[in-house]
């Protein structure tokens, strides 16, 4: 596994080049914002995938890490005037510490039970934040408008800086995910997921590697939360800590393909596109149409393609040669 696969590297660089040039072609701010939303979703999906995909521990409470990131960087910036660049890292560290404290007892739980525990933890934190005076409760926190520029990570004239920051964050998250996938930890994860008993018998400490997975996953999820706070300049429990946020993060990865490096990126592209277009086509939220489309999509993927869109693509690639062969036979 030490050889670098040249075509893959070239493909990855081409993809990156495309992403770098895209907003220079698409200059409409609304469309640039749409691209930013896709990259934000992709970054969260890739981060979730590290624990939910590679290590197979289904978290339905990732909003808690997202919220920790958003609240940590925002509070540090409001109270201490700390730059969000550092606040982002601080949020990541706090979320990682929290995830380890949470994971240590919860990893004893299997399957549904673990998922349920993560929902409970996220809901409890949401209740606590909603009732916290220090964190302004349900009112939420606003970042001051005046302070713009790179150091403050606030940009009022153009969307471009936000685009490149989240693209950078996505690339770093994908690289971290890739490094884990290729390392011995990645093998252990797959072993834990597919053959937990065998892995244990071989002396793989399940809990230790699950803790590594959730620490890394929550770190990047929190950074995504800090980015959201900087972009929106306003956070409240409903926007960063709600169960809906957790579901969306997990769904992006599942839609694209759990346990694949770029599946979540694909998932984000599809999910955000459908979400935005159903909103445009069927009017604003409240009619329920966007929920219906969203739900049908979830059910279809769950029932017909547990491996997500990546699974469908693999299946297609596997079938095309055999179809070609058949065609040749006929000819």
């Amino acid at each position: 596994m030490t050889t670098i696969h040249l075509p893959k590297t070239v493909g990855a660089l081409a993809l990156l080049g495309f992403a770098l040039l895209l907003p220079l072609v698409i200059q409409d701010p609304a469309r640039q914002n749409f691209l930013i939303l896709i990259l934000m979703g992709a970054q969260l999906g890739v981060a979730w995938n590290i624990i939910g995909g590679y290590a197979g521990q289904v978290s339905l409470g990732h909003a808690v890490f997202y919220g920790i990131g958003a609240y940590t960087s925002t509070m540090l910036s409001l109270k201490l005037g700390l730059s969000p660049w550092l606040g982002m890292l601080a949020g990541g560290v706090v979320a990682s510490a929290f995830s380890v404290a949470m994971g240590w007892p919860c990893f004893r739980l299997k399957g549904h039970y673990f998922a349920m525990a993560t929902i409970a933890v996220a809901e409890i934190v949401q209740v606590l934040v909603t009732n916290s005076e220090t964190l302004e409760g349900a009112v939420g926190l606003s970042l001051p408008m005046g302070n713009t520029g790179v150091a403050a990570m606030v940009f009022s004239t153009s969307k471009l800086p936000y685009y490149y920051i989240i693209l950078g964050l996505l690339v770093v998250t994908v690289l971290a995910s890739w490094a884990i996938e290729r390392s011995h930890i990645g093998y252990y994860f797959r072993a834990i997921k597919d053959e937990p008993e065998a892995a244990r018998a071989l002396g793989v400490s399940l809990t230790r590697y699950k803790l590594v997975a959730i620490a890394v996953s929550s770190f990047f999820t929190a950074m995504g939360g800090s980015f959201y706070a900087q972009k929106e300049m306003f956070i409240d429990p409903g926007s960063v800590l709600a169960t809906g946020v957790s579901i969306k993060i997990a769904l992006i990865a599942i839609l694209g393909g759990v346990g694949t490096l770029l599946g979540p990126v694909l998932g984000a592209g599809i999910l955000i596109t459908i979400e935005e277009y159903s909103r445009v086509l069927f009017g604003s939220t409240g009619s329920g149409t966007d929920m219906i489309i969203y739900a049908l999509m979830i059910i279809l993927v769950a029932v017909y393609s547990p491996a997500g869109v990546m699974g469908l693509l693999h299946e297609l690639r596997r079938r095309i040669p055999s179809l070609r062969a058949k065609a040749e036979v006929r000819a």
Binding site: I247, I292, A295, L296, M297, I298, A302
Partner: peptide
């Protein structure tokens, strides 16, 4: 897989 089961009933909830 469990993931599919969770998401199928979750999807139903939203539906």
């Amino acid at each position: 897989p469990m993931l599919s089961q969770i998401f199928a009933t979750f999807g139903l909830m939203i539906l």
